[in-house]
């Protein structure tokens, strides 16, 4: 390591490291595995001239230290929050990181591309309502519900999406929001069956639960664990277990309370 690193080289290193971290951050938030994120960051930094890249990623933080003769040692960390599965964004970020490693575009180009990916809008709200209805109805039928159950489940799915949006707007604690949302769902399915609009509270609930329950998080966390990313795996595993317990408890409790009071 040289004793007096070149100021310009240090600035440059900081700049590409920051962009690599932004890409990693977006990937992690879109649902990428830890190993993929680490791999992408390592590849980008190496391509821009870092001689040694040490990346440590867990689900809530990324720490990268790069070193090279020209700039000495540079470290940056990034706090990650919020998980929003978006596989199209993940694919685009993957392509971008590959393109960077191959062609070394100037920083402004990278920032532009990142901004474009970050600001691409997802589905419109009405489309999301349709998707929630489709998923609820499908799984109610899948687990053996009747057609009437499926219709009730689809309608409740739509109402749950509205509830979900309202709770997001309130910026409640995640677990409390999940409890309220599922409690609302359980109450609706109970009322639906009471009024003859549906045959089985349980079958309607299961369709709606598939929407909210972090099943993918659970499976992915086990994959991380077996992969050797123990901390990330455990963090997500615990989060998934707590969240699913909250959700299931919300649904069941609403139906039980309803059942007792009527």
């Amino acid at each position: 390591m040289c004793p007096h690193p070149d100021r310009q080289a240090v600035d440059y290193a900081n700049e590409y490291l920051s962009n690599a971290l932004s890409i990693g951050e977006q990937m992690l938030r879109s649902g990428a595995e830890v190993s993929r994120v680490e791999d992408s960051i390592r590849r980008i930094c190496t391509a821009y001239g870092a001689e040694r890249v040490d990346v440590f990623t867990i689900t809530s933080s990324i720490v990268v230290t790069i070193s090279g003769k020209a700039f000495g040692t540079v470290t940056q960390t990034r706090r990650i929050s919020g998980l929003q599965f978006d596989l199209r964004r993940l694919e685009r970020l993957n392509e971008l990181s590959r393109l960077i490693a191959q062609h070394l575009p100037p920083m402004e180009k990278v920032e532009e591309a990142l901004e474009r990916i970050r600001t691409t809008p997802g589905h419109s709200f009405p489309t999301q309502l349709g998707i929630w209805a489709l998923i609820s109805a499908s799984f109610t039928l899948f687990f053996g519900g009747s057609w009437l159950d499926a219709v009730a489940s689809a309608l409740i799915g739509v109402l749950l999406k509205y509830a979900d949006r309202g709770l997001k707007w309130l910026e409640l604690n995640g677990f409390l929001a999940a409890l309220l949302c599922s409690g609302f769902g359980g109450l609706l399915s109970f009322l639906a069956v009471q009024w003859g609009f549906g045959d089985s509270v349980e079958k309607i609930n299961i369709g709606n639960i598939m929407l909210l329950i972090p099943g993918i998080m659970l499976t992915n966390s086990l994959r991380d664990l077996f992969n050797g990313d123990t901390i990330s795996g455990l963090l997500r595993f615990l989060e998934a277990v707590l969240l699913s317990m909250t959700i299931a408890a919300g649904f069941v409790a609403a139906s039980v309370i309803g059942g007792v009071s009527v």
Binding site: G31, F85, D86, L87, R88, R89, E91, G122, H123, T127, Q128, I131, W132, L134, I135, S138
Partner: peptide
């Protein structure tokens, strides 16, 4: 449904 939800191409 989930493929749509996750915004797959």
């Amino acid at each position: 449904g989930f493929a749509l939800l996750f915004n797959i191409r």
